[in-house]
Design a protein around this nucleic acid. Structure first.
Lengths: 327, 327
DNA sequence: TCCAATCTAAGACCTGAGTCAGAGATTGCG
DNA sequence: CGCAATCTCTGACTCAGGTCTTAGATTGGA
């Protein structure tokens, strides 16, 4: 039995167990769809958002809401300001009903856990947390996007905001952040979880350094089918590339950032590996990066990913440390 | 957030993820119920069993089967020998269809696992295995039953069969097994998982030993509300009890057995603890047990559960080792 | 041999879930 | 202002899932 079969087996077992659990507390007279609605309508939600979040047809939603408001559990009213969209709110009876649902749900889970010792319970939730982390990580997709795209800029803004807060000296986004539309020889990777951006990073070809060994022919560095947003094949240097006609084999990784909500999943490591792989596929053999001495987790990540410290290679005031790795 | 909320959170996340996974491969044109039927009809099943296993209404099942056999996937025929029950079999087209379903299911799980490294995958399935073990353990119920009940005897038969195989000298069930209906001062605990017996064990009051300290008044050993099948309250000794009018405060644990299908769950430990608790609730202060030197896991269990070795206290040829614990 | 029990088939019926097309209301923008 | 876009409601429709009842076939045991 391989991993796949083991997982299928677990899925069958778990969904069956949890299925009866859910029936136990949800199926108390109320149709499932309505119960889910009650859960989702916290304190006023636009119907539009409800539909999107639950993936419902507008007619279907409208009908369920009608039923719920006939039962006096929710009230639907046009949103002040824009009367096209309507918002649903729980009435006080609805809140009671929801609390009741929650309580029943808690009770049925408690009944399930009851025969287990405290130690066994904590092992159970520990294993669940591990699974959830890994599944989240697996559900995150990495896509190359233009560095000027809205999602990319929003990630970079969050990145800059966080650095401004963490660096004792603050962070000058204007001066230090990659200006939009200037990444011509490299790739901006965006990580999204259920269509919301949660992490990013980019690699960018470095101008050849005079002290570096003279460029050799790009012999076997054939263009690969790997995803790349903007980098042309190595034999066709981009217009913005500096004087030498052969592209540099050194690149820099910059702006690696993971949203706080996605930390602890191992996403930074995955993103870093993806950036390296993409750069390597474009003929890059050496990647460098600079970082701030206050970013302990990042430094630990680079070290454990095979980077070794080198003297700082640029003048950015924020890059007190620099690292390098051969691909 | 306590264990219960953590588990609810995980349930929501997991069922949602797995839900879309299932829709992906099951909802290919065929209704879910029919797909489940295909899975369940392996090589010939009685409709009666199908109904019981899936919890279906006879009319509903009959309708689905009609539809499946109209599609040429299953054939239903009266069982030779008893024409009241009918059996369903997959046709060769049905088998192909099932193989196809399985393949799609594997593919969708594989797609989910694809972004994970081998190490992450093995951590995932490891955590799943842990959860499954703990949930199985939690789903097992311990019930006191008469030692002559069919379920009890079936467990004891399996127990004897296993010992006969494991002991180099064999096992004489006639001589060594508790005869049915003879447990008058003690409790036979049966462990069942989804209504099938999977483990058992019993405690039985020992006749007072002459060398033991003289019996004290059973002062505070009040009868407790704990479950007990046959043991009368300590103040009313059973007719079969030997001469002294006060019940012995020593008991013996015997015939502790866990079906191979339920090993590794920690069930033996739970069963042992339940037996001790039940005995203690009946005024027992010392439990003893004997075991065979070849039963390494059992010996390790007793040691780790707080038993200390004592000299053998009876003449059973199978009890080369004896243990004792004060409750 | 006959009766009760068992098992299944079939039909009527119901509910929930979900889709679709069209009509109204409201708003933003040229 | 008027038009297009957005959002919602409504009703008609389909389908899966499931229950209930009745009837018929078969069998085992009195």
């Amino acid at each position: 039995m391989d991993d796949i079969d083991l997982m299928r087996d677990f899925n069958r077992y778990y969904t069956r167990r949890i299925g009866v659990l859910n029936d136990e507390y949800l199926g108390q007279g109320r149709p499932l769809g309505e119960a889910r609605l009650l859960f989702e309508i916290g304190a006023g939600v636009d119907l539009r958002d409800l539909r999107r979040r639950l993936g419902l047809d507008s007619g279907y939603l409208s009908r369920m809401l009608r039923s719920l408001s006939a039962q006096g559990l929710v009230s639907v009213a046009p949103r002040p300001g824009d009367a096209r969209v309507r918002t649903a709110t729980l009435t006080s009876a609805g809140q009671r009903e929801l609390a009741d649902l929650e309580e029943r749900s808690r009770a049925s889970v408690a009944g399930l856990l009851e025969p287990l010792s405290a130690d066994q319970r904590s092992r159970l939730v520990g294993a669940q947390a591990e699974i959830q982390r890994l599944l989240r990580l697996a559900a995150i997709t990495l896509t190359p996007v233009p560095d000027s795209s809205a999602a990319a800029r929003s990630c970079l803004r969050s990145y800059a905001a966080e650095l401004a807060e963490r660096f004792p000296e603050g962070y000058d986004a204007e001066g230090a952040l990659l200006p939009p539309g200037t990444l011509h020889d490299g790739t901006f990777l965006l990580a999204t979880e259920e269509d919301t951006p949660i992490a990013c990073g980019l690699w960018q070809r470095l101008a050849p350094i005079l002290a570096s060994p003279s460029p050799v022919a790009p012999a076997s560095s054939a263009p690969s089918p790997s995803p790349s947003s903007s980098a042309p094949s190595p034999s066709a240097p981009s217009p913005s590339a500096p004087s030498p006609s052969l592209p540099s084999r050194a690149a820099e990784i910059r702006h690696l950032w993971v949203s706080p909500s996605a930390r602890g999943l191992g996403l930074a490591r995955r993103l870093l590996a993806a950036l390296e792989a993409d750069a390597a596929a474009h003929g890059v053999t050496t990647v460098r990066l600079g970082t701030h001495s206050s970013l302990g987790e990042a430094i630990a990540l680079y070290r454990s990913a095979g980077y070794r410290e080198i003297p700082p290679y640029d003048e950015s005031p924020y890059n007190q440390l620099a690292f390098e790795k051969s691909l």
